Computed example of a mutant assay.
Amino acid sequence: MAWRVAALALWGLIACGSKDPVRELIRDLDRYPEYSLIVDDTRIEGSFFPDYALRFQVLTAAGQRVAGRDTIVYEERRTDWMEVREETFYRYEKYVGMVVASKSLDGRRTGTSQAHPPGYQYVGNPQYGFWGGGGFWQFYGQYALMRDLMGGWGVGRGDWEDYRRNRERGRPYYGPTKGGRPTFGSRGSQTQKTRPQFYQRQQSRRQAFSGQVKNRMGRTTSGWGRGSSRFGK
């Protein structure tokens, strides 16, 4: 239990303000043989001098002895809200619902430059599941949490191959794009289904910002119009 107390203490310090909470969390999570760090939610409060905050979802795996057998046990939890600087906020805000850092049992790691939907790093590995009918990946029952993190999204072979190519090239992967819209990430269609409250807040914030920009442009245009009239006299 000591490691849990230490982790909570560290997260409490990070929540008070950090240059980059992802880097701090990775240092703590490295004790686990396997983990996924997911951007869970974002928050902006205030207008003139806004405060920015991020919250993360953490999935860890550790070996435990259950019913006399050695097994891997997965745990899921969320951090407190972490206040961050504006530039840090916008570094991660587009990745809501996506993994920004991970480590698998084979030692493979991914970072923010390879951000991807949760669970994709396990697809194609026969330890976690198999390719079922219709060419979609099926997780074994004990790994149902991976499927739940995807919100029930079915990963097809072509989808998985696109993910692998982007990972190898060091690029983020937002899932298939349909109608010019990604599946995952802050603007993703799947994110709208699995995080409806976040998505609604985000849309309202963007509409409010767009309205402010239009009002400013309107005042500027009006001012120039009056100025031109005076110069014309």
Score class of each variant (00 low, 15 high):
2 A>D: 14
8 L>V: 13
8 L>F: 12
12 G>P: 04
13 L>D: 12
16 C>T: 12
19 K>G: 15
19 K>A: 15
24 E>K: 08
26 I>A: 06
30 D>K: 13
33 P>T: 01
34 E>P: 03
35 Y>W: 08
38 I>N: 01
40 D>S: 13
42 T>C: 13
42 T>D: 03
42 T>N: 02
46 G>L: 00
47 S>W: 10
51 D>L: 10
53 A>D: 06
56 F>E: 02
57 Q>F: 10
57 Q>V: 06
60 T>H: 01
61 A>R: 15
62 A>L: 13
62 A>C: 08
63 G>T: 14
66 V>F: 11
67 A>Y: 11
68 G>R: 06
69 R>T: 09
70 D>I: 11
70 D>K: 13
71 T>D: 11
75 E>T: 15
79 T>Q: 00
82 M>F: 01
89 F>V: 07
91 R>Q: 12
93 E>Q: 11
93 E>I: 05
96 V>M: 04
96 V>R: 00
96 V>K: 01
97 G>C: 03
100 V>W: 02
100 V>S: 07
101 A>I: 01
101 A>F: 01
103 K>H: 08
103 K>T: 04
104 S>I: 09
104 S>V: 09
106 D>Q: 06
106 D>S: 09
108 R>F: 08
109 R>V: 14
109 R>P: 04
110 T>R: 14
112 T>C: 09
113 S>H: 13
114 Q>E: 13
123 V>E: 02
123 V>P: 02
124 G>E: 06
124 G>Y: 06
126 P>Q: 05
127 Q>F: 15
129 G>S: 03
130 F>C: 10
130 F>R: 15
131 W>F: 02
134 G>Q: 09
135 G>N: 07
136 F>R: 09
138 Q>K: 11
139 F>P: 02
146 M>P: 00
146 M>L: 15
151 G>A: 05
151 G>Y: 00
153 W>Q: 05
154 G>A: 15
157 R>A: 09
162 D>V: 01
162 D>I: 03
164 R>Q: 13
166 N>G: 07
167 R>I: 11
167 R>M: 14
167 R>T: 12
169 R>D: 13
169 R>Q: 15
169 R>W: 09
173 Y>M: 04
174 Y>Q: 05
175 G>P: 04
175 G>T: 06
177 T>P: 02
181 R>A: 10
183 T>N: 04
184 F>E: 01
184 F>C: 00
186 S>C: 09
186 S>W: 08
192 Q>C: 07
192 Q>V: 10
194 T>L: 08
195 R>S: 09
196 P>Y: 05
198 F>A: 03
204 S>G: 07
205 R>H: 07
205 R>C: 00
206 R>C: 03
206 R>F: 08
211 G>F: 03
212 Q>P: 02
214 K>R: 14
215 N>I: 14
216 R>K: 11
217 M>Q: 12
219 R>E: 14
222 S>L: 14
227 G>H: 13
228 S>H: 12
230 R>Y: 12
230 R>H: 12
232 G>K: 15
